[in-house]
Amino acid sequence: MLYWLMKYILLGPLLRLIFRPQVEGLHHVPDTGPVILASNHLSFSDSIFTPLIIKRKVTFIAKAEYFAGKGIKGWLTKMFFVAAGTIPVDRSGGRAARAALDTQLRVLRAGGIAGIYPEGTRSPDGRLYRGKTGVARLALESGAPVVPMVMLNADEIQPPGKLIPKIKPVRIRFGAPLDFSRYAGMAGDRFVERAVTDEIMYELMELSGREYVDMYAQKVKSQQTAEPAKAEPIAA
């Protein structure tokens, strides 16, 4: 109830008015039945923009910490995720990946739309990074089609680390559904899951026009964090 109130009465109309979504290929999203939306991930606001332009409810998952913030900022963050249909998942334990997968499987088995970012984290520089195989496992275990979608300029609207977004139309593009029924019963085969994931990432690369990097985004972020700051030369 709160989701629909936020989407259609409170937050949704305001965001559509401000960011005037420009959408290509929305007809590729089926009107009924389970669907996996696999998207690149450029900005914190990606999970907010996507539900604005799809009539059906789209369910993403996010760290439970996003729902536990304090003060006005914490409340606003929580409301944004509620408006986006996001489900909090405890990702601190060793079973975090399985818990996230099971959550999305329940959505699909109920005939819903599960949103997922195969890269696993936001791109550090706008490029498209190697996908994690969770999206393949989700597709193979559920049998649901995968609709590739790309955020084309969300990183321009709200760059990483920026709290206040720029006001400009958000551009989103959808591709034709991908059917992986030829791999039915092969969930758990790491070679098959890698092949499925790479096929999805190739479609995201084609749709977005972004450079593809065959590394995990999280590894790149970790390397950037670990790099020591260059020492300033000492003046003579």
Rank of each mutant, 00 (worst) to 15 (best):
P118I: 04
T225A: 15
I157H: 00
G71Q: 10
G209E: 02
G111E: 05
G134K: 10
T32Q: 12
A231G: 12
R127G: 00
E156C: 07
S43N: 08
I172V: 13
M201Y: 06
P21D: 04
G188M: 06
K162E: 15
K132M: 09
S43I: 02
S181I: 11
E141D: 09
G120E: 05
L128W: 03
K168E: 02
L5T: 13
V146N: 01
A195P: 11
K221M: 15
D189R: 08
L140P: 03
L11N: 07
L10T: 10
L178I: 09
A236C: 13
A139R: 00
E211K: 15
F80R: 13
T133N: 09
R91M: 11
A114I: 01
K132T: 06
E141N: 01
G175H: 04
V58Y: 03
Y66M: 09
A84Q: 01
L152W: 00
I116C: 03
S43F: 03
E156I: 00
A110D: 14
Q218T: 11
M149T: 03
V107T: 07
K230E: 13
E199S: 10
V213G: 02
A236D: 14
T225D: 13
A235W: 14
Y3K: 07
I164L: 11
D198W: 11
V147C: 12
E211C: 12
I164V: 14
E156S: 10
L138R: 00
A64S: 13
P148D: 02
L37G: 01
D102C: 11
M1E: 15
M149W: 03
I164K: 09
R171N: 01
V107A: 04
G175M: 02
K162G: 09
G131H: 03
L5S: 14
P124M: 10
A229K: 11
L128E: 05
K7E: 08
M151E: 00
M151C: 02
R194P: 05
G161Q: 09
G12D: 05
F191V: 14
M201T: 04
R210T: 03
S45V: 14
S142G: 05
T197E: 00
V150P: 03
H27I: 10
R171K: 11
Y129S: 08
Q104L: 12
R106P: 06
G12S: 08
R56E: 02
I54F: 11
P145G: 02
D179F: 04
N40V: 04
P169E: 01
V107W: 01
R95V: 07
F191R: 15
L128V: 05
Q104E: 08
G94C: 09
I53V: 15
I48W: 03
P118W: 04
G131A: 11
E232A: 15
A236G: 14
P159G: 09
Y8S: 13
N153F: 00
R137L: 12
Y216S: 07
G112R: 06
A136Y: 00
L178D: 05
M215I: 12
A64E: 13
P160G: 07
E227G: 12
E193Q: 13
A110C: 13
T59R: 10
V89D: 02
F81W: 08
S142E: 01
R137Y: 11
V35K: 00
M79N: 12
A184I: 14
V29H: 06
T197Q: 01
I113A: 04
L105H: 10
T50S: 11
R16M: 08
N153S: 01
I72F: 13
A235F: 14
S45M: 15
E156A: 09
F60N: 01
